[in-house]
Design a protein around this nucleic acid. Sequence first.
DNA 1: CCTGGAGTCTGCCCTCGGGGACGAGTCAAG
DNA 2: CTTGACTCGTCCCCGAGGGCAGACTCCAGG
Lengths: 269, 269
Amino acid sequence: MDELMPIGRFSRLCWLSIKALRVYDDQGLLHPAHVDPDSGYRYYTPDQAATARVIATLRTLDMPLASIREVLAEPDPDRVRDLLDRYRMVLEQRIDRHRHMLNRVETFIRKGAVMAYEITTRDTAPTEVLGTTYPSSVDSLPQTSAVAYHRVYAAIAEAGGRPAGPPRMVYLELADDTWTIEACVPVMGLSQAPDGFSLHQVRGGLAAVTRHVGPYDELGLAYREVEAWIEAQGLTSNGAPYDVYLNDPSEVGDPAKLETEIVWPVTRS
Amino acid sequence: MDELMPIGRFSRLCWLSIKALRVYDDQGLLHPAHVDPDSGYRYYTPDQAATARVIATLRTLDMPLASIREVLAEPDPDRVRDLLDRYRMVLEQRIDRHRHMLNRVETFIRKGAVMAYEITTRDTAPTEVLGTTYPSSVDSLPQTSAVAYHRVYAAIAEAGGRPAGPPRMVYLELADDTWTIEACVPVMGLSQAPDGFSLHQVRGGLAAVTRHVGPYDELGLAYREVEAWIEAQGLTSNGAPYDVYLNDPSEVGDPAKLETEIVWPVTRS
DNA sequence: CCTGGAGTCTGCCCTCGGGGACGAGTCAAG
DNA sequence: CTTGACTCGTCCCCGAGGGCAGACTCCAGG
C-alpha cells in the first residue's frame, strides 16, 4: 500500500503526463509522497492517484489550477459543492457569451458581410425633451437605463404632459469605465421640469444618421462605424451623439429585431 | 480624405489599443497607409478604420488573428461567408463542449463529490461470446462500435443463435491514438462463428468491478479509477478489461441514465 | 532657436497550462 | 561495470495582447 513509485509509473497509472505532474507539484496541488533529497526524484504512493484523478477530472472541465487547489484544500464536502457551484456559474456565463457570439456570426453570415451600415446626413429638427442625467458603468447600463426611463415616463404622466416620440439616450461623456448619459423622452405639454429632471430643447441641425437592427450591445460597433464615417467624410463632430429606440424591447421580444437610430450631430468643415 | 493620422488618434477613432494596432501591423492584418522610414511612426488614413472595425468585430467573437487575416484577404463575399460559416461550426462545437462540461459539474454537485465509485471484486463466470475485433481511433469509437454491434446482432440472428446477455466491449490494446477493441455479445445456441466473427469463451475468474451511471465518454475516468484502485489494493491486472452495457442508449434517451459495468480481471498477488 | 510635454518607437517580461527539446544525473538489470 | 531506460531542471514555445523602460520624435509656445 505504501509502495512508492517513480513519476513515470505514476503518470501511466493516473493518465497524466509527467510534465503535468511536475507542474502540479510546483503549484502545490499534488506533492509527491516522498522526494529523494539527493537526486530530486519524485516518488508517489498509489493512493495519491485519487487526488490525481480529481485534478485530471477537473482539468477536463477547464477549471484553472488555482480553483482546483482550493477544491483540494477544502475538507468540507458542502463547501466543495459551493466551489463547484461557483464554477458552474462561470461555465454558464461562458456558454451564454459563446451563444451570443454564435448569434452574431450567424447575423453576419445572413447579411453576407461583417458589417454594413448605410450612413447618411440628415437635418434634424429641434425637440423638447424631458430627461435625467446620471453616470453608469458600461456593464450596468441596461439595468440603470431601464429604471431611468421608467422614472421619466412616470414623471411626464404625473406632470400632465405626454410623450412626443420614442425615447432616446444621449452619451454626454465617455470615460473608459463610467459613462455619463441622459435618458430622455421627447415631450409635449410641459412648462416646467419635475424635481430631479431637466426639461430642455435639443438643438437640431445636421447629423450623421444610421439605423441599427439587432441587440443593443452591438450599438458600440455601430457608433464606431459612424464615428469613422464622419472622419472619412471630412465632417466634424458637433455635440453629444444619441440613439433613438424605435421599438420597445418589452414588446418586440426577439433582440435581433430591435431597431435603433443613431444620430451624431456634425458640421461641414 | 487621404489625411494621415498617427497611431494614437487612429486608435481612439477605431477603439483599438495602440498595442493591438501594432500587433495587427506585425501580423499582416492591417498595415498603416504610411510608415515614416526615419522615425518608424505609423500613419493611418480614416478609411482604414473600416478594416480596423472588421478586425475589432471579429475579435469580439474570439476569432483568431490568422482566421481574420484570411477573411480580410478574401475579396469574394461568398467565400467570406464560407469562412464565417466555418467559424460558426467551431463556435458551435465549443458551446457543445462547454455545455457538456456544465452537465458534468452539475453531476458532481449532485453527487456531492468529484467522483466516487464503489469498486469491489467479484468472481465472474465464463461466458461464450460472439464478437468482432477491429482497431478504432478514440474519437470515432461511438460510430464504429454502433456499426459493429449492429453487425454482431445481425450475425447472431442469421446463424440461428440468440443473445444471452447485454453487449460488452473489450479493450484489447490501447496505443495512444488507436485502440484495438472487440465488440461482442454473450450468445447461446451457436456452434460455429459466421465469417468475419469470432466465437470464443471469455475466461471467468476474479475481477474488479464497478458501475458507472452517466454518458459513455466519462468511462475513461472510471477506468482510471478502477486501475488505481487495483494498484492500491495490491492486486494485479490479469487480462483485458471490458465494459458491459446494462441498458440501451436507443431506449434510454438521457445519457445521464446510461448504466455501464466495468470489469477488470485481476489476480491476488 | 530652444524647450517642454505629449506622443511614439522598440524591446523585454508577463499571462495559463503545459509540450518539446537538451544536457546531465540516476536507477536497476544483466 | 555497463547499458539502456528513466528522471532532473532549464529554456523556449503557443495567443493576443498589457505593462513598463528607455530612447526618440512631434508640435506648439516663448
